[in-house]
Design a protein around this nucleic acid. Structure first.
Length: 156
DNA sequence: GCCAACGTTGGC
DNA sequence: GCCAACGTTGGC
């Protein structure tokens, strides 16, 4: 049996929180308008796991776990003129942006704050703690992922 | 609000 | 292809 890949995906809790995902059960991770982040998303496979990271809030932290349900979905917001993610440069014959569908897996009882993460890992081990990192989607090394699960007492 | 670290844009 | 100007992200 092959192991899944692990990822970290950021969201501002004011925009979309882990609690909202728990309520929704699943959501389209749309509105990504950064090529590096998009390209990481394109590498995702069904059944991969992703840590949910709350960014730009009182306590930036890894707060939960998601499962990748579907990949390579055309991001509908790029064609929606009423969306703040509307992209006039994209076109339907060659869409510029795509996304994945994620589902709720777990809300961690113990969150791991950015401050804690900085004490535990280097920027090489976990890109989120790298100085100046702004990527909203990054891969997570499998060994580090397992370590994070232990640290948060994950049931997973 | 500041600012570092990028990414994007557009003139040349 | 270079690079200056500008925009965005996100911790602090």
């Amino acid at each position: 049996m092959t192991e899944c890949n692990w990822w970290l995906m950021k969201s501002e809790p004011d925009a979309y929180s882990i609690d909202q995902l728990e309520e929704d059960r699943s959501t389209l991770w749309d509105g990504i308008r950064n090529y590096q982040a998009r390209n990481f998303m394109r590498k995702m496979k069904k059944k991969d796991k992703a840590f949910f990271y709350h960014s730009n809030c009182k306590l930036p932290c890894i707060c939960g776990l998601m499962k990748i349900e579907e990949t390579h979905i055309i991001d509908p917001t790029q064609f929606d003129k009423n969306s703040k993610y509307f992209d006039p440069k994209s076109n339907k014959s060659n869409p510029r942006w795509d996304c994945v569908k994620v589902s709720f897996a777990e809300k961690f009882h113990k969150e791991l704050s950015l401050q804690q993460l900085k004490g535990l890992y280097t920027g090489e081990q976990l890109i989120i703690v790298k100085k100046g990192n702004r990527l909203s989607i990054t891969p997570v090394n499998q060994i580090i992922a397992k370590d994070i699960l232990k640290k948060v007492n994950s049931n997973f």
